[in-house]
Design a protein around this nucleic acid. Structure first.
Length: 221
DNA sequence: CACCAGGCAAGTA
DNA sequence: TACTTGCATGGT
């Protein structure tokens, strides 16, 4: 019987061998990564890139710049990312918290302890666990594992966890069994998303999936 | 045409 | 508490 830790390390090896390095979450600055984390909620990254391009072209792509912009103008700029009225509000909520509590200085905000950062992010209306953890890992480089729909789907389908497991418990599973290295968490999450998009949609393509024979449950049985 | 995409909060019973 | 619904564009 393989342990949970061995299963997770094997999963990483299989995905890494099949897909290789993902160079994930391109973004010139922590600010850009943070904005992208909100814009990509339930949205294709290609659409987010267009929205970010619009923000850059506006000449106001700074924390204060976006915060001082009208919500209508912000919504128009991020239109390609979808849910633009919702996301302009959420983005403003996030920027507003940093303006009020940290003088609009993102670097000051990122000096907080990881637990404090997470709580502050989750206190913002529109920032849920995945968005908060994405900001912690990809923008603040903290050793926080990001769970998403694919993580949940792949692990439950392969018998690693019950389907009804919570976000926090699934995150805990990874963090208990892997060393707290941001680079590892970054690559692992990117590989999981890549595998999910390629092989583990609602109608799975298990035949050629590198995880076909991985985990406690044999998918083909 | 249907389906999907790196969620979250609010509404309903 | 446990479901369901709204939010929206652009690509396959």
């Amino acid at each position: 019987m393989a342990s949970t830790g061995q299963h997770l390390r094997e999963m990483y090896e299989l995905l890494n061998q099949h897909f290789g390095p993902q160079h994930w979450w391109p973004g010139d600055t922590a600010f850009e990564v943070m904005v992208g984390a909100v814009l990509t909620q339930n949205t294709n990254w290609a659409n987010v890139e267009k929205a970010i391009e619009n923000l850059k072209d506006s000449g106001d792509f700074t924390l204060e710049g976006l915060y001082n912009m009208s919500e209508e103008k912000l919504a128009a700029l991020i239109r390609p990312a979808g849910y633009y009225n919702l996301k302009s509000r959420r983005l403003r909520n996030l920027l507003g918290m940093i303006v009020r509590d940290y003088g609009g200085d993102l670097s000051s905000f990122f000096e907080e302890e990881t637990e404090t950062l997470r709580e502050k992010l989750l206190s913002v209306k529109g920032i849920g666990p995945e968005t908060a953890d994405s900001i912690l890992l990809y923008a603040a480089h903290r050793p926080v594992f990001v769970v998403d729909a694919y993580t949940h789907r792949i692990l439950s389908r392969h018998g690693m966890v019950l389907e009804e497991i919570s976000y926090e418990d699934l995150q805990e599973l990874f963090m208990r069994h892997l060393p707290p290295e941001p680079d590892l968490y970054n690559e692992f999450h990117a590989l999981i998303v890549r595998a999910g998009k390629t092989f583990c949609r609602k109608r799975p393509l298990c035949i050629s999936c590198p995880l076909k024979d991985w985990g406690p449950v044999n998918i083909s049985s």
